[in-house]
Computed example of a mutant assay.
Amino acid sequence: MSHTAHIRSHRKPRRSASKVAMRAGVAGGVLSTLAVAGASGSANAAEPVTQTLELPTLTADLGAQVAESAQATQQAAANYQLQAERDAAAAQAAKEAKADLAEAKKKAAAKKKAEQEAARQAAAERASRSAERATLSASVSASASTSTSTSTSPSTSTATGSAAAVIAFAKAQVGDAYVSGGTGPNSWDCSGLMQAAFKQVGVDLPRVSQDQSTAGTPVSLSNLQPGDILYWGSAGSAYHVAVYVGGGEFVGAQNPSTGVVERSLDYDPPTGAVRVL
């Protein structure tokens, strides 16, 4: 036996095909596991990237919400300010309206007081005129009675006394209003006043000035006597009449602006005159 017969060969023994295949399978399995793990790791590593990409979108939405909230807050503040201004304006308007109402009430009260005072004065004037007329009627009756009993010429004495009564009545109406067609007791036209004045002594004159201008005996303006009827215009077509009261004066219902007045003949010279007393 050789001394080397027990020395093992340095050559590596050949691996069997089955072992090689098994090892290859194991290696493949390990690689597959590593590949899956790698893929899983890659997937896990990708998740933060996905979240990072979504973050700007969330941040933009939040910014829009904040901006919208700020705008709503500003709008609410503007609405509050507008409402406050409206409330202040309404309060000022109410204050002014209250002041205007108080002023209107004050003026209405003053006007009412003035109207009441004017009515009182008018009533007092009417009462005074009524008293004057009553006194005048009594005076006319007494004068006529005295003239009839003492005069040797009744017609002349009655005419004089009647003229005085006519004049007194006409003067008592001075200040009354002129109203076309007026026949008293507080408003007259020219012929209405003449008719009422002469009626006091029983003389019935025609109603209109045209007829009154021819109702008596024509007399010259240079020979006038108290109680004569003056007329303006032509006899029979006169447009105005009045009574001569003596002293160059006459009394008549002139026009709406003056009413019943006493004026000088120079103020409005008449055209002619007639005598009925």
Results as ranks from 00 to 15, higher is better:
A94C: 07
E117T: 04
R8A: 15
N186D: 08
S137H: 10
D176Y: 02
D176P: 03
T73E: 12
K199P: 04
A78V: 03
L136V: 05
G175R: 03
T152C: 14
A91R: 06
H10N: 13
G236Q: 01
Q116I: 05
A124D: 03
A164D: 04
S191P: 02
E132K: 15
L277T: 03
W188E: 00
Q225C: 06
S234N: 10
S139R: 11
P56K: 07
V274T: 01
A67G: 06
G63R: 11
R207N: 03
A163D: 01
T158R: 13
S18R: 10
E132T: 11
K106R: 15
D211E: 07
G29A: 14
A27M: 06
P256A: 11
K113N: 12
A99L: 11
D189P: 05
G25T: 06
Y231A: 02
Q195I: 04
L82R: 14
W232G: 01
Q173G: 08
S16G: 09
V243M: 01
N223W: 08
Q75C: 14
P269D: 04
T52E: 15
A215W: 01
R263C: 07
T214Q: 11
R23W: 11
V179D: 09
Q51V: 10
V140L: 15
Q121P: 04
T135Y: 15
A45H: 10
M22S: 14
V251Q: 00
G175Y: 01
A78I: 02
A131P: 05
E54M: 13
V208Y: 08
A17T: 02
K199N: 10
H10I: 10
S130Q: 12
T57H: 15
T148V: 14
V26N: 13
A24M: 08
Q210D: 07
A76H: 06
P226R: 02
S153V: 02
D228A: 04
R275C: 05
M1Y: 10
A124M: 07
Q200N: 08
T59H: 15
E115G: 14
V30M: 13
A127I: 01
S147W: 06
D228K: 00
D211T: 03
G41H: 10
L136M: 12
R86E: 09
Q225M: 07
D100P: 08
S147A: 13
K106D: 11
S162I: 00
K113M: 12
T152S: 15
A104F: 06
A127V: 03
G259D: 02
A46D: 03
A94D: 04
S213G: 02
Q81C: 14
E132Q: 15
G181I: 01
V49Q: 14
K12F: 13
A142F: 06
A60F: 09
G202T: 02
T33P: 10
A24P: 03
A108K: 07
